[in-house]
Design a protein around this nucleic acid. Structure first.
Lengths: 129, 129
DNA sequence: TAATTGGTTAGCCATGAAGATAACTATAAA
DNA sequence: TTTATAGTTATCTTCATGGCTAACCAATTA
């Protein structure tokens, strides 16, 4: 019955929030407790914890509690999933550009060939502007 | 008064939706009309148009209308912003790993120096493999 | 043992996002 | 000139999100 979000959905929507991006950025520099993480933000703890939870269910962040303090760290291969997606898109995109370039080249060659056969036409386009 | 979302917010939340990601993927392969784009989706047109709008205000997609058909294309440097963000995070992350490795190396050296002063201990350590 | 600290649970509210339908506009085709 | 196509606008419903407070553990510290 649950909505079964895909991993990418969760990662991207986790990163869509500036607070959560800031947390990720902070955690890139090393692990930290919830309290430390929450400190810079003018936000009630329970609200803040929701962000942590969102990051955790997206798989970007892991945490573990020892005593009464919960320590958070970035999941090692966390950002890879999203980064891969970009690279795949870029691959398709660049393949298309290559094909487009090839196409343009072909057009150009055809034009040149045509020009060789009808030099008068190519040298001067009639009064069109 | 408006909420003034950052560009990254918009890009990531645009990409957080599977429909919109599919649109982006499709557009990587070349431009298309709204109708063509909407075709594969079982969704009313007005709903679909909202997705196009979201992609457009995020800057990922551009479109222009000629006659009665609106043609959409991926903005050339669209995905770059987001990709950059990942790369910056990775840079910080990797710097930290380097520092961590340096730290481990330092510990190791200190241990070795200590071992040199108390050789009896080191020999034992060897056997402990 | 009492007080503090660090998080957690539960529940409330306002806003926004994702979908739908219905009715409309403007261009193209018959 | 009618009809069909391709979007657009307006409005409604539902559900998710992001924030809050209040009350509640469970470890530390005094």
């Amino acid at each position: 019955m649950a909505n079964q979000l895909s991993r990418l959905d969760q990662i991207f929507s986790a990163l869509a929030d500036p607070t959560r991006r800031a947390i990720v950025m902070r955690l890139c520099a090393g692990e930290a407790s919830v309290g430390e993480l929450a400190n810079p933000f003018a936000m009630a703890l329970p609200s803040f914890m929701k962000h942590i939870r969102a990051l955790e269910t997206s798989g970007l962040v892991q945490s573990e509690k020892s005593g009464r303090v919960r320590t958070c760290r970035l999941s090692p291969d966390a950002l890879l999933g999203a980064e891969d997606w970009f690279q795949q898109q870029r691959a398709v995109w660049e393949a298309r550009l290559d094909r487009f370039e090839a196409y343009v080249m072909k057009l150009k060659k055809e034009k040149e060939r045509a020009a060789a056969k009808r030099p008068s036409r190519t040298t001067k386009r009639k009064g069109a502007e």
